[in-house]
Design a protein around this nucleic acid. Structure first.
Lengths: 334, 334
DNA sequence: TTGTATGCGTTATCAG
DNA sequence: CTGATAACGCATACAA
């Protein structure tokens, strides 16, 4: 049994109120009692019970984080931003997976509610109407990272996927590529799928290039998805000179299959990724990619939530700028 | 203000005791009151307060996880194993970073203590005497993952780094490599550094190969560390035909620098990694590496901790088997 | 400067 | 089957 303030009070011969005061150094007691209480506390190995505190203070100093997964570099960077920031501000983070397709999202939010987290950060999960209801009914500040909803009252931080995709494809076009494939986006994903596809097609159209639907290989953001897409391009005998990928891992999948088939990147085919996650500079060749400031998104989102908790102010949605990081996976055609 | 069982009791015209009973369906009440209580609970949007529960039950159903970082695939896989498992068993996970060199380890453990986590999992941080004291004084079940101490009373799950390294280097020797470099291990790291170096040197010695200290490039487990090491090999004009790396990321760093210098892997130089993390099959060429069952370590460790929480049994240390995953980064010399 | 008393939301032990 | 009531560990308004 861990010691409580009662134990300290008894041993030190003071009241629990006094103990509480010196433990939280609120001042208003003389030095002697302070010394005595602190000494007893140390002797007894006292450690405050945050849960009991939370109960009376009606605040847990805890931030909940819900994300689909943590095994990709993408999420790793974000959670690091969140954890670092919350730590700096005296908050703990409690983490839960939403399941692969947000399947556990309701249970996750419920759990966060029962734990009475002070704020909530939801990363990359697409929220449907019932989930949004449940979320807002929690009555705590929250923010969405790298995702959004079609409602006004759900603040988010994300890049503009449409224009980020547009930037990437335009870069390819500027390098004289005319036959450009796209891989790894799910058209049914209205947050991060279709906007990227639309950015891709619009860039093509704006430069007088006909869109060939066969050149769009839908899929998930995974490495395997990239491999599959490239295999399809090969089977199609598609005459593409470049591929725009919906994630860095997809890009690596493309490059991996190219390698297996002795197709050289970027000599035979150019590749552009998306995310600028840690893997992008580790690939061979290093990957040219659209950067999302992942760590900063985590940090920024966490900061916003904390501010909202403390000042009870509203959180504004924010579209953050993307940036093209040019490395070595794109060849300039002549 | 969230509704409490008091509110429900008042509205439903029963006592809080009864409400509590039906909420936790403990039985011993008639159907009518159950229906009534449930209806009121739903109407009021009641959500139980886990903190209050924890207080009286003296158990938080929470597991703490401390790791140096979450941005590498290595930790991602482990935490996923932990989170999945704890979720299945009704536990929440609260996560904190220990800081780069375990610098925040004391604060982290203290935080976990104050949160009254029921069990603790510490991943990959080297624990010194004072930290061990603090850890055991928490008085809760804990386990170390991928690390250990020199004391008997600190259970762990890890692979045998020495023999894993030995296996990797022996594989290289079996493929007729005789001049083998090593990169990315820190000799001052007695857990994951020196054992791997020792495994490397012993494999060499056992096969009549002289150990050349110039061929051992110490460093961290990072990509950059691998790049630096390979640059050093090049500057040394070392006549190596293979490099054993202390992590997959180091291996990718080696391969990256090779690429920049037009050294072909595996034709000019063979590379073996360590971890079998997600990046190892995404590299070009796919990386031959020593596999640690990361997800399973997370799962297994979590299971042990939960068992210890519930049955108050001791946790046994466990050395789990490693395995060489052969892919395409090693060339068989003739 | 210090102590008393009360309550936070819940469970659990009694009686009834 | 149900209801008082006392904890749980702590903070705090109010008294002294």
């Amino acid at each position: 049994m861990a010691a409580t303030i009662k134990d300290i009070a008894r041993v030190a011969g003071v009241s629990t109120a006094t103990v509480s005061r010196v433990i939280n150094n609120l001042g208003g007691y003389n030095e002697e009692t302070e010394k005595k209480v602190m000494a007893v506390a140390k002797a007894l190995g006292y450690r405050k019970n945050e849960n009991a505190r939370s109960l009376v203070q009606k605040s847990t100093n805890t931030i909940g984080v819900i994300m689909p997964d943590v095994t990709t570099a993408f999420y790793g960077d974000i959670i690091k931003g969140i954890e670092d920031t919350s730590y700096e501000h005296g908050y703990s983070v409690i983490l839960t997976h939403a399941g692969s397709h947000g399947s556990r999202i309701h249970e996750s939010m419920n759990l966060m509610g029962e734990r009475r987290v002070d704020g909530l950060i939801i990363v990359s999960v697409e929220l449907h109407e019932t989930a949004i209801e449940a979320l807002t009914s929690l009555g705590i500040p929250f923010i969405l990272l790298s995702t959004k909803t079609n409602r006004e009252d759900t603040p988010y931080i994300k890049v503009d996927d449409y224009s980020a995709a547009y930037t990437a494809v335009k870069y390819l076009i500027d390098n004289n590529h005319r036959s450009i494939g796209m891989a790894g986006a799910n058209p049914d994903d209205s947050i991060a799928g279709s906007p990227r596809i639309n950015g891709y097609t619009q860039a093509l159209l704006d430069h007088g290039i006909k869109v060939d639907l066969n050149l769009i290989k839908p899929g998930g953001f995974s490495f395997e998805s990239g491999k599959t897409a490239m295999q399809a391009f090969i089977e199609d005998e598609a005459s593409i000179t470049a591929v725009f990928c919906a994630s860095d891992e997809v890009a690596l999948g493309i490059m991996s299959t190219c390698f297996e088939n002795e197709i050289s990147v970027p000599n035979d085919i150019s590749v552009v990724g998306y995310d600028n996650s840690k893997v992008s500079h580790m690939s061979i060749p290093p990957l040219t990619t659209v950067a999302q400031p992942l760590y900063e998104m985590g940090r920024e989102g966490c900061l916003e939530v904390i501010a909202a908790i403390q000042n009870k102010c509203k959180i504004e949605s924010k579209v953050i700028p993307h940036e093209l990081v040019v490395r070595k996976s794109v060849k300039k055609l002549t």
